[in-house]
Design a protein around this nucleic acid. Structure first.
Length: 131
RNA sequence: GCGGUUGCGCGUUCCGCCGCCGGCACCUCGGUGCUGGAGGAAAGUCCGGACAACGCAGAGCGCCAGGCUUUGGAAACAAAGGCCGGGGUAACCCGGCAGAAAGUGCCACAGAAAAGAACCGACCGCAAGGUCAAGGGUGAAAACGUGAGGUAAGAGCUCACGCGCUCCGAUGGUGACAUCGGUUUGGGGUAAACCUCCUGGGUUGCAAGGCCGUGUAUACCGGGGCAGCGUUGCUCGCGCGUUCCCGGGGGGUAGGCCGCUCAGAUAAAUGGUGGAAAUGCCACAAGGCAUACAGAAUCUGGCUUACAGCGCAACCAUUUUU
RNA sequence: CGGGGUGUAGCGCAGUCCGGUUAGCGUACACGUCUGGGGGGCGUGUGGUCGGAGGUUCGAAUCCUCUCACCCCGA
């Protein structure tokens, strides 16, 4: 998974399983957006502040490793370039949180489409976080 | 010029901006600078090797792989050559290679018979019976082919020529083998059926294996200790022993480091965007579209599979001109 | 990254080791029949590139090689 500067990426079997098991989710094309519920009695004490991002691309959908690499890099680049748009919400968090983007379509989308979908998804996450 | 065959090689390049991973050096401790950063198949994991753990006196059985020759190689395998079969006008390409006369098995249907065969048939004979394997039909496959002699009829029964096999000799070649001569013989197929012979392989694999840390119930073994019980009424001694402590042992839990590499990974870094150039296709033009197959995970030698295009060399066929 | 397995009617499976006669069974589907009707029983029938491509063989679902899917196991 991508190691973004200053923001550790989401890694380790335990972390992934926790988000998939306990977290909430919604769907915004082309992603299934899974995120960790922030205030769980302060159990995540070792976690650094900010967003930890995980990207999941199914081997079932894309058989070739080249295709999975391409999609993952496009998603990560889109996240990096548009990060300023949800910076306020990110800094409002007291503790860190984890997000997993599950790429849920069978087509390899170009960068513009991925960027559009990612921004919509992130802004939607910001709204659910601060009502 | 056009088309083709073979062997090699390349398989996009450059610049601007914003970024990623590793290493090194500074230092205000998370910034700055320097530097390295996917392939010919990295792939499939089909064979090898290194390396690691375990096993091992020596040998055998079993299993797996290979099987013409020479050379290279640790082995897989490769290159050149030989023979056989197939494709192409040609250059050339593709496939195969010990043993079926050591033995066992199988050969459906059809057919008399599928391996030491006899139904129809031919001949002798009144008949019983006997001799024979030419011709017939079946089948994927039927017991050397053609001609002549021979015979009751026939048959490699004999002869000539041809084909194949065994052995011997000569010449050429390192050799497989080729050519020629002689000799013996004429009894299918299948070993990607069992098998025989020769050669190679101990087994399991980096999730191997080692170190550190975390740390809970305790089958079992050894040592120590309090109380207790037994051994004679008591003491010593000896034995037993719930529980406690220490060590061994097996079972279970989340993680880090080494192995692990001047690419070197905790779920895994090489990207995004803009502009030129090159090549191909389309178009009168402006211009437009496309640039393959595909992404390292201990390293390495092969094999196989995928692959848009382009360049070079040799050769073949065809057309035109000289 | 290493081991290992499975592809056969719409669905679930035999057959593959040891090649040959018709690729079989259950279920589903269609028709007939038993019943006043449903359910169920009985009978008949339809339905197969044996995952794909080469090879060995007279002959391949079966043997050999390559390839494509899917599924297990191993910190």
């Amino acid at each position: 998974m991508p190691s973004l500067k200053g923001q550790p990426s989401l890694r380790g079997h335990g972390a992934f399983d926790k988000v998939f098991g306990e977290g909430k989710s919604f769907f915004q094309f082309p992603f299934q957006f899974r995120y960790e519920v922030p205030d769980t009695q302060g159990t995540s004490k070792e976690v650094l502040p900010g967003i930890r991002l995980g990207i999941s691309i199914s081997k079932r959908r894309f058989k070739r490793a080249v295709d999975r690499n391409l999609i993952r890099r496009r998603v990560r680049e889109a996240f990096r370039l548009n990060r300023h748009r949800w910076e306020e919400a990110e800094q409002a968090l007291q503790t860190g949180t984890a997000i997993i983007l599950v790429y849920s379509t069978n087509e390899i989308l170009d960068f513009e489409r991925i960027q559009e979908g990612l921004c919509k998804a992130m802004l939607r996450w910001c709204r659910t976080n601060q009502p």
